[in-house]
Amino acid sequence: MLITKPNFDHTDDFYAALIKAHDGLSKAQSDALNARLLLILSNHIGDQSVLDTALKAASSEKELS
């Protein structure tokens, strides 16, 4: 089951760390970092049904914007 309720230990700390990781990077470097991060987290989840639900949730956001 994909968790969609708040689940961060330290929400603001995570968000700041995510932005900070991209400090000083070019667009290409940032894209690469995001891709690596996504692959690392996806492997950590592993469960195909959770990943499918996450992909679907992310894709529907795109359609709305």
Binding site: D31, A32, A35, R36, L38, L39
Partner: peptide, 8 residues
Amino acid sequence: IFRDAVLT
């Protein structure tokens, strides 16, 4: 981008 991320 994803392909290169995998390889890296």
